[in-house]
Design a protein around this nucleic acid. Structure first.
Lengths: 207, 207
DNA sequence: TGGTGATTGCGCTCACATTCACAGACAACA
DNA sequence: TGTTGTCTGTGAATGTGAGCGCAATCACCA
């Protein structure tokens, strides 16, 4: 299957596997079988094997997957080995939480810049970066920043997205519930917290 | 198709449609066609029509969907019409942002209680609720709280989940990256912010 | 009341993803 | 070195959702 197109769902699961692998590696383990990794992550073993099989031979029959090389491989596939830099736009409640969020580091991410419209926030230091004026958001390309995180109110989302695209951003993580239009070359992933909560009651037993 | 099982993907999209419908309704519109709604939300028209067709006749040929009744119907399907109450566990950076988050209200959600382990936070008021001691998290059932939101550090997630289940919670929105084990009757939706960001570089053009 | 234009509802088909089962590969050990 | 048990890799089967086209339906208007 080495020459197939990788299913989107597989790509979506790769970070899950990566996290599990790093977790086990930190505990001093050398290798892990698909069955044990599956138990840890709450997925099925054959799902893991199938997913990995798209990229070639990761594992050793009779033993399992060597954690160190597995981590290295997934990092390479997801292009996390380069140490991606991100820019945050909107330092409100959510934005501040994201700046303080420790989880980005484990994937090699760094929030290298933050911007806001609020004059009172501009110039202040928050989570290691100085908040800049959103009007001066430019030349991110020169600083090697390719990712944008949008955490602004709903009505300015599109405007911010346009600015980010102009500044050379190639991928956007959008926390605003509004659909944004960008050139096809730019990938957008939207996280809508309220919407995820909204489908929870549907699945809950009636009483 | 009225007697079919509803696809999960359709349920996932219903909140999107609901938000779009509410947005348009607030602008004074009466009806919307699938084509226009699709343009607004960035989906395909036939996707909307198919999704709605699972639930019976929502629309009127030649006109479109009547917004007011559409909103009422989706709210009923997702059981949002009852006004769901949620409990937040973990009032750190993310938890605080969630308490201040205005987006829950539009779906009829209310964060009716918040808990933390930190003695310094307990007793304080944050976003309209008094932060309680997590050790005393009980009898949520009596207060009509069915939803739990977990925003605690990774290593205490399972413990908190168990506590919530014991307290009668029927659905959990989990912001921790760890897989949690719960009885089958409890529905868990996990939002892993770092993981969503982690698959972004894969899709970005190489240069 | 009958014609017209717009839009829905839905069966059909295709593409993609999950699940399964098993051949082949490897480690361990006698 | 032969044997045994374990685990991977993957083709084939099954399940699920997206895409599409069109008949049926309705508002509108002369």
């Amino acid at each position: 299957m080495r020459y197939h197109k990788i299913p989107d769902e597989t790509v979506r699961r790769l970070p899950v596997y990566l996290r599990g692998a790093m977790h086990l590696s930190q505990q001093g383990l050398e290798s892990i079988s698909s069955r044990h990794l599956a138990d840890l992550l709450g997925v099925k073993p054959w799902q893991i094997r199938k997913d990995f099989s798209y990229f070639g031979d990761f594992g050793t029959p009779g033993v399992g997957y060597h954690l160190e090389s597995l981590i290295k491989q997934i990092n390479k596939i997801l292009r996390l080995d380069a140490g991606q830099k991100a820019v945050l736009v909107g330092v409100g409640n959510l934005g501040s939480a994201l700046l303080a969020f420790p989880g980005f580091g484990m994937y090699g991410f760094e929030i290298a810049a933050a911007f806001d419209v609020d004059k009172r926030k501009i110039g202040r230091r928050r989570g290691g970066v100085v908040i800049g004026d959103i009007a001066k958001l430019r030349n991110l390309r020169r600083r090697g920043i390719c990712l944008g995180i949008i955490a602004v109110p709903e009505d300015t989302t599109q405007e911010v997205a346009d600015t980010l695209v102009d500044a050379g951003i190639k991928g956007i993580l959008n926390f605003s519930p509004r659909y944004i239009t960008v050139p096809k070359r730019v990938k957008v992933i939207t996280i809508d917290i309220a919407m995820d909560l909204a489908r929870l009651p549907y699945y809950m037993p009636l009483s």
